[in-house]
Design a protein around this nucleic acid. Sequence first.
DNA 1: CATAGCCGCCTTTTT
DNA 2: GGCGGCTATG
Length: 717
Amino acid sequence: MDDPEHPASIMNDELARQLTPAQTKAVFHIDGPLLVIAGPGSGKTRVITYRIAALIDAGIRPHNICAITFTNKAASEMRQRTIALGTAPGAHISTFHSLCVTILRRYADKAAIQPNFSIYDDSDQTKCIKQAIKDCELDTANFPPSRCLDTVSALKNSLIDPDSFKNNADDFFSKTLAKVYMRYQHILAERNGLDFDDLLMKAAFLLRDNPDVCSELGNRFRFLLIDEYQDTNHAQYKIAKALVSSHNNICVTGDPDQSIYRWRGADIRNILAFENDWPNAAVVKLEENFRSRPEILRIADALIAQNKNRKPKKLIPVKPPAANITIAASEDESQEAQTVVQQVKDLTGRGAALNDIAVFYRVNAQSRALEEAFIRGQIPYQIVRGVEFYNRKEIRDILAYLKALVNPDDEIALLRIINTPARGIGKTTTDAVRAYAASNNIGFFDALKKAGDIDSLSKAPKAKIAVFVNMLEQFKTHLTDPVAALAERVFIDSGLKDLLQAGGEEDKDAVENIYGFISKAAQYDRQTENPTLLDYLQQISLFTDVDAYDTSADRVALMTLHSAKGLEFENVFIVGLEEGLLPHERSDTDNEDELEEERRLFFVGITRAESNLFISYARYRTIRGQLNRAIPSRFLYELGEDFTNRNVENQCCYDDAESQEIQHQALEKGDLVRHDSFGLGTVREFIDMGEDSIAVVKFNTGQTKSIMLKYANLSKI
DNA sequence: CATAGCCGCCTTTTT
DNA sequence: GGCGGCTATG
């Protein structure tokens, strides 16, 4: 579909002729707000790319264009494509988070932060929130760190700062949580760290409180384009609104049916209410689908039509019919994986390339069984996962060294490296230094420098600390060296390399990984105009493995349904279509909104497929080491009458003897029931499918389960 | 102060 | 079945 080799610029007639009328309108309607409602496979990304080119062709300087994508990968692809269209480079194309880093660094003083901030990831955040809970003298049993973090994250995404949260807290729990939030922010500030949500919140507050910054940025970015607008949260919405307040040249594209990040604060109302926010907005709908065969679109359509809370939208196929859709049942997850591998072999036998094949699943844990099957079947694959690479111990170690050089207040980084490799500086010593830092109101690194003055320390640890401090100071004299050179110096001179080389086979991989890291840094040094260590560290904090996913490598891609957004494949497998997995049990299926989001997730998966779609579920699945009986997902029955009858039920061959014995029993919502192992519960939902009927029961243990009546002995009371 | 071994916790999805 | 954190031991 794309034509990156075309040498001409966008205004070239021939290129313009490749666009549909709707696409043409979206590309060339240049002034004022524009909403592009674009279904899956409608060439949305292509439209944005052409639009950037069209703006430049119309005389807008690339420098004045800002495009926001959902992932770094999408950003770098878009950069390449605009250049391939023959337009000048220089447009700012990045994610919201990267844009905020840029803004916060430039206006650090006005945002009341230091520009050399560290970006705190998940595990750093967990450490800080645990500290905060402890400082507030609370028990982690009543205030679990993960719950607290989730709440804090939601507050930040809604732009509620600790003070206003505290002022509005009226019950005991909120008041206590307000203290934790306050303390957590205080700890981050002390360490000169920002978490992911801070990047958005601080940028939003900066723009809110500084009209001059707002208009300066409005001048800089005279055209703002936002992709995947259905997944913006409140903070991002406010940032966008502030950025265009002086000119209203905003163009957003998205699809409400593909909104799958509600749990992260995404607010689908942002796209639904776009025309209220910008009343003179032009609206373009892209409903033609250039990606999938009509059979695939038909079941996608039938599925998504089950969502009540949506604006109806058709998927109009352009390709002729020729799809293969299969629903297969397996005994368990390893057999399911084996079936996938077998099917992959069939496909490649018929000439399919491995990178035309993808396998999607709901949770990362499902990748294990698949991985084993692919290894056994000797089929090259790549798992596209969140932050695998940067989460490795050795990478975190070297990163901690580099972070500590840039941001001496980063206590987490310093504590990580102070005794790695072992320098005889243990907990007793570091506790004494921390106490000294706290009582003298200085940073951890300053306290280390003054370790000689700490009375509670004896001579030996003082000397060891001095050696450590000298080493870091020595590294700091090389701060302006190329990042790769500095990273290698640190790796060798810190003793990390010797430590790893003395180790076993696993540590050999670790050395390899660090050299992989160094060559990535070298690539950064080469490709960046003004490379600095600070910039590099802040950039890679926002980088995930998904961004490193190599679409051209001849390997089957394995990823979660969430990661699949924006991608397309000739052949798609979706595994684990079971109650509890898709829809996931952690999403409250009583809550219509959450159930609908799970349905959209399945919809996103289906609409990635061009021609061949394989859907599968297992009758048994091992979850956390426990073998569980699985029930086919309710979504399978929503794929359309003819399709469901022909495929699901015929393939659901339950031949267990016990199924004969249990007679069909009708239940109703509200019925009190007893289960052999879960005890008493209340029926929340009853899906009557004859002998395949399913009851969704909320048990008194607190858990909600979907029970297939013919398997479980569920008696009505 | 370092290390090994054990206990208990959690596990949706990601920038 | 995996990891972080704690404890007991050297």
